[in-house]
């Protein structure tokens, strides 16, 4: 089983499955840095996934579809920002309501547009974002099949880790966003609008969720399917929480979760073990990771408190 070829394929599958988690993790990082917990990643990704498929199918242009996915991610982010920041609705409730509405809303919209309720695969012509073979590298054994030939958006995802870091660290907006997240009164005392920064963080979160959604429906598969995000938004959020909203850390944790996902997939095909338990692996590992990190953090805090005496 563990041939070189298998390792290469497995690595490929890890990176592929990590892609949406990386985007979700980074989207959560941006919101977290602005001081908010974005639990609506799930809904934002779902809306974007549908928008991408539908618009690319309607216009016959892949890239317009991608743009639409991003646009709808951003719009959903804007709705959440409006409700929670301007409407002063509890952010938790807003996000939960958004996810509920997105789960039903996408099916509804899909039905109106295609007459289907489960998937668009039959009704809408599929467009997929191209995969890219990296010359030279693809010839290297093991590593070549692992990192070459991925969907464009997979490479963009890894690039985004750097981009988000750069944005937060090197741009004025990023600096202000971090300032607002850590100490809103300090930021507003020097004339920075906390409200505007809150909006911006959700809109940027929307861009990343748009890419994630597009990857799901125009890369991973080539159609939209009811509930296709399947908890990935929450797993991405956990990645950000575990990494304390550090972009590189969130990326690493996302790849770890991608690894468990890939493990589950490969186990399913090769064993007689009930598949239900294998399906639980990504969720169970998320819960486990959250607990482990919680134990580490409380121990650390306890040590600090003891040292203080």
């Amino acid at each position: 089983m563990f041939t070189l070829e298998w390792i290469g394929n497995f690595g490929f599958s890890v990176l592929r499955l990590s892609t949406p988690l990386i985007y979700a993790g980074l989207a959560a990082v941006i919101s977290a840095k602005a001081g908010m917990m974005n639990m609506a990643l799930e809904g934002m990704m779902l809306v974007a996934a549908l928008a991408g498929v539908v618009v690319s199918g309607m216009t016959g242009n892949l890239w317009i579809g991608l743009a639409a996915a991003i646009l709808f991610g951003v719009i959903t982010g804007g709705v959440i920002a409006f409700a929670s920041i301007s409407g002063k609705t509890d952010l938790y409730l807003t996000c939960i309501a958004t996810n509920l509405a997105a789960a039903g809303g996408t099916v509804f919209a899909m039905y109106l547009l295609t007459g289907e309720k489960a998937t668009t695969s039959a009704a809408i012509r599929a467009y997929t974002i191209p995969s890219i073979t990296i010359p030279v590298i693809d010839k290297i054994p093991v590593i070549g099949p692992m990192i070459s030939g991925h969907n464009l958006l997979t490479y963009v995802a890894f690039f985004s880790i750097w981009a988000v870091w750069f944005f937060l660290k090197r741009t004025r907006l990023g600096l202000r966003l971090r300032a607002v997240g850590e100490n809103p009164t300090a930021a507003s005392s020097v004339g920075i609008s906390v409200k505007n920064i809150g909006y911006i963080s959700f809109l940027l979160s929307g861009v990343l969720c748009g890419l994630a959604g597009a990857f799901m429906s125009m890369g991973w598969v080539s159609f939209f399917m009811k509930g296709m995000i399947n908890g990935r938004g929450y797993i991405g959020l956990s990645a950000s929480n575990i990494a304390s909203a550090n972009p590189a850390g969130a990326g690493i944790v996302a790849v770890f979760f991608g690894f468990t996902d890939a493990l589950a997939t490969s186990l399913k095909s090769g064993s007689s073990f009930p598949s239900e338990f294998i399906e639980m692996i990504p969720y169970a590992s998320t819960m486990l990771a959250v607990v482990v990190i919680g134990i580490i953090r409380t121990n650390k805090a306890r040590k600090v408190a003891k040292g203080g005496h």
Binding site: G174, L175, A179, V190
Partner: peptide, 26 residues
């Protein structure tokens, strides 16, 4: 109560709100 952002550097705190820019970046 100091109006400061703990994880940022002194320079970033001092110039928050009136950040110097170069090529569109901080």
């Amino acid at each position: 109560h100091f109006m400061q952002v703990p994880s940022l550097t002194v320079a970033e705190n001092v110039l928050l709100g009136i950040e110097p820019m170069k090529n569109g970046l901080f």
